[in-house]
């Protein structure tokens, strides 16, 4: 069996480009969810009250040590029984990957928060800032700047995890490649093109993150 160029250009590439939007939407949706929930988890984990911080820690560890694929199945198949909540593959995917990566991002936030010098906390207290003001105007702006490149890397990791969503029936790049393969019995071209698309997108995104790192000039003091 040899590679067919006309099949590649007339059938595979146009149909894959049609669904590339789905992959990107899932990535951005899950990332936005993870960025917000990750911050909440990081703050809960820091709480002085043990009945808040310990369950949060347990939740983070449980999510981090179990496969995202199984978590997706759980959300997609079990949530309808448990909460009477039937989710579309896209919503279940955003929720599943979002929760999984929020636990990773909570660790990233934690590192950022801990890197803020103690004097900043004391100065905010001395200026009589309320806790909300303190976090909003003093701590978080300084905590988030150094972790932006790390978050960028997690965006790329998350992008590479979106093929999992084909397992719950979302028609993203890999789901479409499988569909084309099932219709035409030619799997070589679709999967090769999907691989190349992933390589191009993730590699160019990693170059962007590197440039951001230089631009932020994190060694500035």
């Amino acid at each position: 069996m040899v590679w067919k160029w006309d099949f590649t250009f007339n059938e595979v590439i146009p149909r894959l480009l049609e669904v590339i939007e789905v992959t990107i939407n899932a990535t951005l949706g899950a990332f936005a969810f993870a960025v917000m929930v990750g911050l909440v988890l990081a703050l809960l984990r820091r709480s002085d009250r043990k009945w808040i911080s310990w369950p949060t820690y347990g939740f983070i560890e449980f999510i981090r040590l179990t496969p995202p694929l199984v978590q997706l199945f759980f959300i997609f198949f079990v949530f309808p029984h448990l909460f009477g909540l039937t989710l579309s593959p896209m919503v279940a995917g955003i929720l599943g990957l979002g929760i999984h990566y929020s636990t990773y991002l909570s660790e990233v936030y934690r590192a950022g928060i801990e890197s803020v010098p103690k004097g900043q906390w004391e100065a905010a207290t001395a200026l009589n800032f309320s806790p909300l003001q303190k976090w909003k105007s003093v701590i978080l702006p300084q905590a988030i700047r150094p972790i932006l490149p790390v978050m960028g890397n997690y965006l790329i990791v998350l992008f590479k995890e979106t093929p999992l969503l084909s397992a719950i029936g979302l028609m993203e790049l890999v789901g479409m490649a499988k569909g084309i393969g099932a219709e035409t019995f030619r799997y070589t071209e679709p999967f090769t093109i999907v691989g190349i698309l992933f390589l191009i997108l993730s590699y160019s995104a990693s170059l962007l993150v590197k440039r951001m790192e230089l631009k932020l000039d994190l060694n500035r003091r």
């Binding site: 590479k160 499988k178 393969g181 799997y187 691989g195 992933f198 590699y203």
Partner: peptide
């Protein structure tokens, strides 16, 4: 290394499972 880091695991699995047999 960059190739296997840049494409995702599931794509690699599917490629080896579905596409490689068609190449013989």
């Amino acid at each position: 290394i960059e190739f296997f880091r840049g494409t995702s695991l599931l794509v690699q699995l599917f490629w080896l499972y579905y596409a490689l047999p068609l190449l013989g």
